[in-house]
Measured scan of single mutants.
Amino acid sequence: MDPFVVLVLCLSCLLLLSIWRQSSGRGKLPPGPTPLPVIGNILQIDIKDVSKSLTNLSKIYGPVFTLYFGLERMVVLHGYEVVKEALIDLGEEFSGRGHFPLAERANRGFGIVFSNGKRWKEIRRFSLMTLRNFGMGKRSIEDRVQEEARCLVEELRKTKASPCDPTFILGCAPCNVICSIIFQKRFDYKDQQFLNLMEKLNENIRIVSTPWIQICNNFPTIIDYFPGTHNKLLKNLAFMESDILEKVKEHQESMDINNPRDFIDCFLIKMEKEKQNQQSEFTIENLVITAADLLGAGTETTSTTLRYALLLLLKHPEVTAKVQEEIERVIGRNRSPCMQDRGHMPYTDAVVHEVQRYIDLIPTSLPHAVTCDVKFRNYLIPKGTTILTSLTSVLHDNKEFPNPEMFDPRHFLDEGGNFKKSNYFMPFSAGKRICVGEGLARMELFLFLTFILQNFNLKSLIDPKDLDTTPVVNGFASVPPFYQLCFIPV
């Protein structure tokens, strides 16, 4: 058959498939802009700032609406009420993970971030239990974070109060905490193996944040037939998995079943207990991918939040002064901060919360999916439909947070200066898919920041009023603009 005829037939089939998918069930789905064949609503979305586009569309179609990214149908949730109703009140029905062709290629359905069903539930339950087990290797997770915080302070001392970009050092600290939990080992910041790991993690975040990856996920045929950065992403992930597998083999040879040292040991012990169960989800494949998931999810998000926190503290020296006064009063100079201190430091706690609220790190979270046909607000959402959640619409709700575009710790303080919780605080998402490392991340943010401010004054290279804190939105995360500062020993 003539190649031209084959091409026309293929394009015609794709067009018909697109029209059929977009028209099927439209009477039951939430409203939304009319999609174009094949490309859907992509032309109506700013790929570099999806969150802003969703906010604009919500003003037209309401808090629940339908979009098509290519052939992929998505239902968008915008605003606290619908997000709570879906992710919390109907948590089980909305607990699936959205379709990610690239991740599915890399992870093969294993791990904790992109798995679904029984596998996801069992691996998540085990990971939560293990991360909360403060007795691994007779050292609590808090001990590990405190140790890394001391190392971080010593690295900052080496800058000798000269101007520096904190990106690298602030990236090393949370990565080392995860390494300590998974591998029972922290690395020197100049260790070549550690630097290679950091390089792969950072490069992957840069790649994932590009519009090209959005295109690959919406048109998965590209993955096999086109060159691009997605190939580098898959190569980096394969490198990390190979490295983790080597460490798993080392653990198998040296493990003491009665004295687990780290996450890998705990997983291997669980595998041993379930070795007679042919349906067990505790396999080497799941261990390797879960460890890679924890490394990827637990490094860049925390380091970016820390980097943004220091920029905001530079911009608002009056806030920094209040935090340091609270540190001096509650902790002093002669001991290290600990998590028990947080309950006695409402202002510092409010500042950490406000940093996370203000920066809105992951504006749309990772997409969910419905696990069955769901009736939601008089609409029928078919099983498997991807759910896109606007966390921006919750964290920047102007009824809950007056002047949401302003950095103001009073958003989390009552009139008496006591810490005030808010149900709208969802930087880790909400419901059954809430970030498994939430507790660890909150511990790291509090301890790293208090250790830094206990030991250093922060000095800006320019007038604080002239510092730009506008986030650089890159399609996946909101990151701070480049800046330098000086760490002046107190």
Rank of each mutant, 00 (worst) to 15 (best):
L306K: 00
S58Y: 06
C179H: 15
K235P: 04
P260L: 05
Q252K: 12
R342D: 03
D349Y: 07
G137E: 12
F239S: 14
V394P: 03
T55F: 10
C435K: 00
L152R: 01
E250K: 11
D265I: 01
L201P: 03
R119A: 10
L245F: 09
N116C: 07
T386W: 07
K459V: 07
D341H: 09
R108P: 04
N116F: 04
R150L: 09
E148L: 00
N202E: 15
E250N: 13
H230A: 09
E326Y: 02
K52E: 07
T55C: 15
F100R: 08
N423R: 09
L29P: 06
D243H: 15
G25V: 15
C172K: 11
L314M: 15
T34I: 13
G431F: 03
K270P: 02
A369K: 14
F187L: 07
L71S: 15
S390F: 02
Y308A: 09
F114L: 07
T229R: 12
L391P: 01
N116H: 09
G228H: 07
L245R: 13
S12G: 12
Q484S: 12
G384R: 06
L9N: 00
A477C: 11
L361R: 03
V473G: 08
S12I: 12
W120C: 06
P346H: 03
Q146H: 12
T302P: 11
Q276P: 12
L152P: 00
R157L: 13
K235H: 10
G111Y: 01
T301D: 04
Q356M: 13
T385M: 06
L313K: 00
L16R: 01
I387L: 03
R157N: 09
I264G: 01
L152V: 08
R119D: 05
S140G: 10
L87V: 04
V64P: 01
A321V: 13
I327K: 00
K84A: 10
A321T: 14
L9D: 00
L361M: 09
Q356K: 01
L447Q: 05
L90M: 15
V6E: 00
N378K: 09
D191L: 02
L306H: 00
R410P: 03
C216I: 14
V76S: 02
V490N: 15
